[in-house]
């Protein structure tokens, strides 16, 4: 469904992503983990069209999407969320989600119905009328997911939607991701904390200094020497897994 072939992104002298190749098949739930500054978000920015790769190709459903603007990539069925959430702060939760729905739907009426459904799915119904900026961070992360879902993606990129949440919020969002996956959505999930990911993802790619240093099931990755070295000093994170 999504294939990266040797994707490289440089900023001046710094290579943020170096020759990353990976393959996502329909129905996958792929996790990408790595320490801070490993290039995870940069990789998402390249896939979603925010940055232009300096080398390599990004192929989504047979189309090379390199050089296409983000909105065009979204319309192809690939939607991303932001690690630093970007809600439309002055609009209501319902309107936020509806703007996502309008990408597929021509009529405001239809989009509003669709938004209601998505808001319900994501457990945001009690807050539908609230202003997005008034939400606590846990709900704003949910709103990121809801808004992206409303664009009816076939592949959803989630950028650290679990970071900074309380344990109960975390459990809720993990449950949501599982449910979406069970309903047939393909997902790539970026996470800094390995613990949650170990229980969620079927397959994990580990990024370190912009390179993919390991790939495999959570169990395989957790035993990988290079991964443990990369996370040295953060072993407690592994221990939780």
């Amino acid at each position: 469904m999504l294939t990266l072939e040797g994707v490289t992104k440089r900023f001046g002298g710094l290579t943020a992503v170096r020759a990353v190749s990976l393959d996502v098949r329909r129905g996958d739930l792929l996790g990408i983990i790595g320490p801070n500054g490993a290039g995870k978000t940069t990789l998402f920015n390249v896939i979603a069209g925010y940055y232009r790769a300096d080398g390599g190709r990004v192929v989504f459903e047979g189309r090379d999407v390199g050089g296409r603007p983000p909105h065009a990539i979204c319309r192809l069925g690939l939607t991303r969320t932001f690690q630093l959430v970007k809600p439309f702060g002055n609009l209501s939760v319902a309107d936020n989600v509806m703007i996502g729905a309008l990408t597929r739907l021509g009529s405001v009426r239809a989009a509003r119905l669709e938004a209601e459904r998505v808001v319900e799915t994501c457990g945001l119904a009690p807050h539908a009328g609230a202003r997005a900026r008034a939400l606590p961070i846990g709900l704003r992360k949910r709103l990121e997911v809801a808004r992206a879902l409303a664009t009816r993606p076939r592949l959803l990129l989630l950028d650290e939607v679990m970071a900074g949440l309380t344990p109960s919020e975390l459990a809720g969002i993990v449950e949501l991701i599982r449910r979406l996956h069970a309903d047939g959505l393909t997902l790539i999930v970026i996470e800094h904390i390995m613990a949650a990911m170990m229980r969620l993802a079927e397959r994990i790619v580990v990024l370190h200094h912009g390179e993919a240093i390991a790939e495999g099931t959570p169990g395989e990755v957790a035993r990988d020497r290079r991964v443990i070295d990369a996370y040295l000093g953060e072993e407690f994170v592994l221990a939780q897994a």
């Binding site: 983000p70 909105h71 319309r75």
Partner: peptide
């Protein structure tokens, strides 16, 4: 309104 509130987010949601 989406563009006004946050352009990057609007782009991510398929808005040109």
């Amino acid at each position: 309104a989406g563009v006004r509130e946050d352009e990057d987010a609007a782009e991510a949601l398929g808005i040109a």
